[in-house]
Amino acid sequence: MFKQLSRAPGRIARPVWVGLAGAGGVLRELMRSPQSALGTLIVLFFLMLALFGPQIAPYRANDQSSAPRLEPGGEHLFGTDYLGRDVFSRVILGASSIFRTAGFGTLIAVVIGTFVGLFIGYQGGTVDEIAGRVIDALLAMPALLIALVILGIVRNLNFEPGSWQARLADNSVLLVIALVYVPIVARVVRSSTLEIKTREFIEAAQMRGESRLYIIFREIFPSVVPALVVEASLRFSYAIFLVASLGFLGVAARPPSPDWGLMVNENRGGLYDLTPWALEYPAAAIALLVVGVNLMSDGIRRAVQKSG
């Protein structure tokens, strides 16, 4: 009898595609405002550099065939750095590492954080109380500080090349970004879940005897998506910021990789002479990308608010 009831017409469940269909509307909304359109274009531009960098860059990242510290112009559009490497090429080639670490790091954090947030939010009670406190406590530590300490310790460990530890260590920046952002994403998803689970359609699903997994993923998850999209775009912009700062502090990428933060640090005249252009162009690239992502995420937030 209950089985029959669950197939009754007028189910209030919101299928997944309702949440996802909103994405098209969000994209259209994004292009309507000049600011967010500009931001999106900037991000797409850098994404192109990240994907096709090796085809675009005139020199290889570590080609030292030119004289060091050549001023911008002529053969070298952005000049050469203290080792005679082409700054223009290195800026282009640096795009891929920042998208890889910040992008995938954010993605992993969003996926894990969503699972954690949905489960503790739906579970409620003691589990939620404890998990909520733990999340709050973890967030008392600044992300930069944790990332700095973990990377500072890990980067000096010598693992056998090819072993699983070595592979983890090679991706340590990406993993650390994911690690520091999981509690933040989880908290956002949790608070959305707490609000949504009191709605009538959840009660209806519980009455029908739907499984917990069904309720969490088919009923609650679609309603969490808007808040999640906004948070993910915000996290991505902070992640770029964080990766650049860690690179500058010397714990993210190792020389001679063309990492923007590292390039700024190498050319600012500590060990070697100050090479202004070799520092200004990567710094400008970081700033431009972060401005682009910020404008885009502002637009996403507005669009989601409008359509939600």
């Binding site: 700062s245 500058f248 970081i286 401005v291 910020n294």
Partner: peptide, 15 residues
């Protein structure tokens, strides 16, 4: 403020 918030601290500092 949006443009300042977009600049990492080391960029502002070096500037």
């Amino acid at each position: 403020t949006l443009s300042v918030v977009s600049l990492p601290e080391f960029v502002t500092g070096l500037f």
